[in-house]
């Protein structure tokens, strides 16, 4: 028994330094920040943000720990925020995936005197209510409005907003912003397309047939954009509409290259990882902090810059 215990202790004597050497956080000289996301391990979209964190940490000489609930359970995320606060980091960057669930944990961290920034999900109002320093994200209404302004400049007068996620308040705001920029009441210009590609295809087809004077299309993501692109290819009306969509996918990229899609709205997630680290570092070192929230989007991907975007897709874009 004694020899066994000795063996195990020896094993741990080896394992502990190994574990510690890859855990520089507690011993680093620079500031230490924790970034807490709500995304499950399987969500590849966040890879861009992870890369942004790596770059920002390198350039500012800080360490940034990325944390997420492995299954995407927001209740687990609240525990991770509490855990992060317990380590007394120099700052916490978190998404507001669910205001109610995370409220107490974030407020507790702020009460402890830890600077907190919110990014991505959530609104500027929620961020302010929590007492965070600032919110860095893409306001949905303004993103829609930006798209609308672009469409108006291109001469759009009548539009359809293809909403595949109508239960989400944010997606309605996108359509509303677009309509307001055009100066057209939203009314029945927004259609509830559902998520099923065949249904999206047929609903858009029916709408465009019934409203022949339509000249602008806004889709809210790949789910509504891809069937619509297919429809326009099938009918050959590839240049009849000013077509703007949210987000990017392989099909949307091809649509932009072929001139079917005028532009794609990119919320530029890289900035949502990079900026908070840089700003928190300056805040810790010199006490400076911009007074306003930062909108990382809408950035527009068009025929002109699609080459660069495609090259960096999944890494930095």
């Amino acid at each position: 028994m004694a020899s066994l215990v000795k063996k195990l202790l020896t094993a741990f004597a080896v394992a502990v330094p190994v574990m510690m050497s890859i855990a520089p956080a507690a011993h680093a000289d620079g500031e230490r920040f924790v970034f807490v996301s709500h995304a499950p391990d399987t969500d590849s979209w966040w890879n861009v943000i992870k890369n942004a964190l790596k770059n920002a940490a390198k350039e500012t000489g800080t360490t940034v720990e990325y944390r997420n609930p492995p299954t995407g359970d927001i209740a687990d995320m609240a525990r991770i925020i509490e855990q992060s606060a317990a380590t007394n980091p120099d700052g916490i960057i978190t998404t507001i995936a669910d205001f109610d669930v995370l409220k107490a944990s974030i407020e507790q961290a702020i009460a402890k005197g830890i600077p907190v920034m919110t990014v991505n999900s959530g609104t500027a109002d929620q961020s302010k209510q929590l007492g965070a320093l600032m919110h860095i994200g893409q306001p949905e209404y303004d993103a829609g409005k930006g798209a609308g302004a672009r469409a108006k400049a291109a001469g759009v007068t009548n539009f359809v907003c293809v909403n595949h996620y109508i239960t989400n308040a944010a997606s309605v705001e996108r359509c509303q912003g677009y309509a307001d920029a055009l100066g057209v009441p939203l009314g029945d210009h927004m259609i509830d397309s559902s998520q099923d590609p065949t249904q999206v295809y047929n609903k858009v087809k029916a709408y465009l047939t019934a409203h022949a004077d339509t000249n602008g299309i806004l889709t809210l993501g790949p789910n509504s954009a891809e069937p619509t692109i297919k429809l326009l290819r099938d009918t050959g009306e590839t240049s009849k509409y000013n077509f703007i969509t949210f987000d990017l996918s392989a099909d949307i990229s091809q649509g932009i290259k072929d001139g079917i899609v005028e532009s794609a709205i990119d919320q530029q997630p890289y900035l949502q990882g990079y900026l908070p680290v840089v700003l928190l570092t300056q805040y810790k070192r010199y006490g400076v902090m911009p007074a306003n929230n930062i909108n990382t989007g809408p950035g527009f991907v068009t025929k002109d810059n699609i080459g660069l975007v495609e090259k960096l897709a999944g890494e930095y874009r």
Binding site: A26, R32, P70, Q83
Partner: peptide, 13 residues
């Protein structure tokens, strides 16, 4: 998480 181990390796640890 307290040890600050990299997140990518969390489940391995």
């Amino acid at each position: 998480l307290f040890t600050g181990a990299p997140n990518d390796w969390f489940q391995v640890f």
